[in-house]
Design a protein around this nucleic acid. Structure first.
Lengths: 339, 339
DNA sequence: GTGAAAGCGCTAACAA
DNA sequence: TTGTTAGCGCTTTCAC
């Protein structure tokens, strides 16, 4: 269609330079020594023909694509986009490219994408960010080196490495902080039950509270997706049920949903933290500016992305191939102004 | 390394089913009729062997990868992540995958990535989001169908389609609005000069203002990158120079920078819009909640992403191959509370 | 309706 | 040091 010319192949170059394709290949890959004379002639021929190696043919031959599949719930979520960006930066340095897929928070979609990767090939490895599929599925018939980010490790026989923070501990730090601020009633806007870390956050929070003597009835739970809208809705619901006669705090299990929750409180004419306390989780970039500064738990996205990138690179280079290896990063309490 | 088994090939399947590879291929691609008997036998063999076609080999043969390269300044920027997400959704429906690269707002990086795509192959097409390279570079020796998003069209002989809004018009709408609000002095925190649309926004803004009789000296300009941090810095700088004795408004040429600018104003003890008006551009998802609602210009990210996706698909299918075809989307003024 | 065989563009063993 | 050649796994013409 209109104006496209045929690409030169290695054979065209070889012919023009009067050498064999093997020699051309050797100057391209720098895998063998080629005399200066020939090398110059070949380079010149390549220039004349505008030759660039066909990456697909090479991939087929060497059985390596230099591409890594990344599955993420939603690239639009700042928490995930930070991670992806860092992954990209890290693997780019090693000449790998990233194939990005959104699962849209749907397990079925995630599994579909996952299967198409592990079966179809076309990538050398896989990075799964906050995956929701079952451990069995993850431990299934993949032949690909895999790193799982932001999900607790589990026992596996596969070449999987896990990069995450201890969300149970994080959530209980937040609970302690809330306790120290003299809140009496609590709500948790927790993430979906299909997300292991959402459950870690909820149980970490609740356990710490109950351990401090808070009654179960004084801890309301509501589940929602990790999004602004759902956080907004969840908070609206809570506000309808709850009478705020006692000092109450809401722990929302992601900053983005916490932001939505805060706006929902505003919409009801409530001030944060005066009328109700709201805490988040993740410490996304913007957290610092949500409602003058959202109190939250640091979930080190950059570090996670970086570690995930390095981990996958290691796996690809045959290092760090301990099945189920876990890289556990630190998280910490970030006290700001919403609680 | 440890536990990986060899993938079955089409020949293994053929052997097991006692047919030729051609027949197996025919059932896979459904390109020719195969008797029910053989088809069943082949399907069964595939199942037994856990066979899946090697996508790389197929790509080499049919000279098509079903992958599209997408270059974006920064996936972490909500404006871009929205676009990318929509692109992904759109092309996914046509079985294409997306290879994501961040240029980090650097022209050199962008050009490097661009070249590696147009030379090396490995993708069937390219989508460039808000690219900064020159028109000559864009009109250079690419053989790939390309769509350029969020940048004004220019004359080209290549199979490029442009998807964008008229930023000159958008900015002048904002200027009109500011005028109607009786502001007397103006500043424009404009994007980098290397970005065509940043200049459109600035000139559209200034022209409208001067046309209404505003003196050039009452329009301050300062350039910065499209980011929260840079918007913050730019505003800080403006505030040091400007005495706010007269009603002044700052037009920031992206929402994300506008947010930074607003926070900078807050840091100086100023209230928006009481002490100073701030307007943005793009209407990103969060704009609705920045400082109770950022006044801005709608830049339809979803539509842009969608149109870009469809455009690239059309190009790939040989449709819409008019060199330099432009798809111009509407933008509109979104009046909220910061001005 | 099915099969034999060529060949996509490259790399790498082996030969010279 | 350089060349010959087989073959990666697939699709596709062309016989049958």
């Amino acid at each position: 269609v209109g104006g496209y010319f045929l690409r030169a192949t290695i054979r065209d170059v070889a012919k023009l330079a009067n050498v064999s394709t093997a020699t051309v290949s050797n100057v391209i890959t720098e895998s063998k020594f080629v005399s200066d004379e020939l090398r110059a002639k070949i380079l010149e021929s390549m220039r004349i023909l505008g030759y660039e190696p066909n990456i697909v043919a090479r991939s087929l031959k060497i059985n390596k694509t230099f591409r890594i599949g990344v599955i993420v719930p939603d690239i639009t979520n700042p928490f995930f986009s930070e991670i992806v960006k860092q992954i990209e930066t890290t693997i780019d340095a090693a000449k790998y490219q990233l194939i990005l897929c959104n699962s849209d928070y749907q397990v079925e979609t995630e599994v579909k994408i996952y299967n198409s990767f592990i079966m179809g090939g076309g990538v050398d490895a896989l990075i799964l960010v906050a995956p929701r599929m079952t451990e069995q599925q993850l431990d299934g018939d993949s032949r690909l080196p895999t790193v799982v980010v932001d999900r607790p490790a589990f026992k596996t026989s596969k070449e999987i490495v896990f990069v995450y923070t201890d969300n149970y501990v994080g959530a209980s730090m937040m609970a302690s902080h809330l306790l120290s601020k003299d809140y009496l009633r609590f709500a948790c806007i927790a993430g979906p039950e299909s997300v292991p870390n959402a459950n870690m956050r909820f149980t970490g929070f609740r356990d710490r509270l109950m351990q401090a003597g808070v009654e179960k009835d004084d801890i309301k739970v509501i589940r929602c997706e990790f999004s602004f809208d759902e956080g907004y809705k969840a908070m609206t619901e809570i506000l309808e049920d709850f009478n705020l006669t006692e000092r109450t705090a809401v722990f929302v299990s992601s900053d983005i949903a916490a932001w939505g929750a805060i706006e929902a409180a505003h919409a009801k004419g409530l001030e944060v933290p005066k009328d109700i306390g709201v805490a988040g989780y993740d410490n996304i970039y913007f957290a610092n500016f949500i409602n003058q500064g959202l109190t939250t738990i640091e979930n080190p996205t950059k570090l996670m992305g970086e570690q995930a990138g390095h981990a996958i690179l290691d796996l690809l280079n045959g290092k760090g191939a301990v099945p189920g290896h876990a890289i556990i990063l630190d998280s910490s309490l970030i006290v700001r102004k919403t609680v």
